[in-house]
Design a protein around this nucleic acid. Structure first.
Lengths: 198, 198
DNA sequence: TCTTCATGGATAGTCACACTACCCACGGCC
DNA sequence: GGCCGTGGGTAGTGTGACTATCCATGAAGA
């Protein structure tokens, strides 16, 4: 398809598409001479992914890291999570993992790499909440953790079995884009639970 | 305390504090004449809350709505959730609630107001994820919803019983600031679950 | 063939946001 | 009496995400 069609179908202006191309968020189309290029369904998908990431609050620079990862698929299923974790935008990337977090994970019996960026994110997020007057007792954290096991079970079940590239796409895009879904569900569940209904 | 002390203890420059005061994010201190004012522990708490919200990605304008809500506490426990939902920053505030979301909530047996902003956020978040190639099957959504019930149970259990103002603070701040904690836990749980350990 | 128009490629401009810097006048405080 | 911290105000800064304009080219319709 032509750029104008890519623009229409993705709901993105041509100027913005050019910007994404410049920034490397979307690969160049197949050149058909100096003044024409052909874009495929893959390009359309990519533009939609980039738009969804940016609308979800991910910066252009972080989005670039994400899509670059998608362009170099993992060699094995075992690589999947590692590649995804490394590509995903992480908050508080430079705090030191607290002993509390280490103990929490150990107490849960979770098998996670001590280098996982999520450990740093968790440490930072807990500190931020507490500094704002949200106590976050250890038993609350344990309760939250048990609930996220259920979330992760759904996540893992939804990953395609055979196609590694599709699996990586699902893990990376799903991790970022399902967070807002979970946040909304959490608010609804709060309303339900606090209404006292069974 | 003096403004300089408030600045030190909150880790915020005097210039930024003045900015927050101007924008109404922090109430003025008690005036001690024309060139001096006294700030209390409440002001320090408020500054830390504002900083945490802004660091979490909430805009200044939205943060103002949040803290304004805290300044007019609810008259009853019943008001709590309503006031909080109304004050909290919501994504996709102007989409129409989809039938799928209505059916999902009904199928779960959840009691929620049909006007809840979270229904709109959920509709928008699902649409955003799908447009980026994350399918989100109905059974996945149901699974996520069941897991968020556990999260909400922890949330509700952590709300102070007697002090309504403290309860509102906890609900509002907790809802926004615990989201990143849950996101980090989710990533760790993914790693654990996908490792195949029981 | 002539004209129109979309494209690639590049540069510069815009807009919102969250500060940040500077200024002034005043009034405690040593 | 001099100096610093403050309230109050205005203006400037840096970043991020576009957005607008320009130009040369070449495809496609009249």
């Amino acid at each position: 398809m032509k750029m104008s069609e890519l623009s229409e179908r993705s709901g993105t202006t041509v100027a913005t598409l050019k910007y994404y191309l410049r920034e490397g968020l979307v690969p160049a189309g197949e050149s058909l001479g100096a003044t024409r290029a052909d874009y495929s369904e893959m390009h359309l998908q990519r533009v939609r992914l980039v738009r969804a990431l940016i609308d979800a609050g991910v910066s252009v620079a972080q989005s670039k890291r994400v899509v670059e990862t998608l362009d170099s698929p993992p060699t094995s299923r075992h690589d999947l999570l590692g590649k995804a974790q490394y590509a995903l935008p992480a908050s508080h990337p430079d705090v030191a993992v607290s002993a509390e977090v280490t103990d929490l994970v150990a107490g849960l019996g979770w098998q996670v790499s001590p280098d996982s960026p999520a450990l740093r994110s968790l440490t930072g997020a807990i500190a931020a909440a507490r500094s704002a007057g949200v106590p976050l007792e250890p038993e609350s954290l344990t309760g939250y953790a048990r609930a996220t096991e259920g979330i992760a079970a759904v996540d893992v079940a939804a990953v395609p079995r055979d196609d590694l590239a599709a699996a990586l796409h699902r893990v990376v895009a799903g991790t970022v884009l399902v967070d807002p879904v979970l946040a909304a569900l959490r608010r609804l569940a709060q309303e339900h639970v606090s209404s006292g209904a069974t």
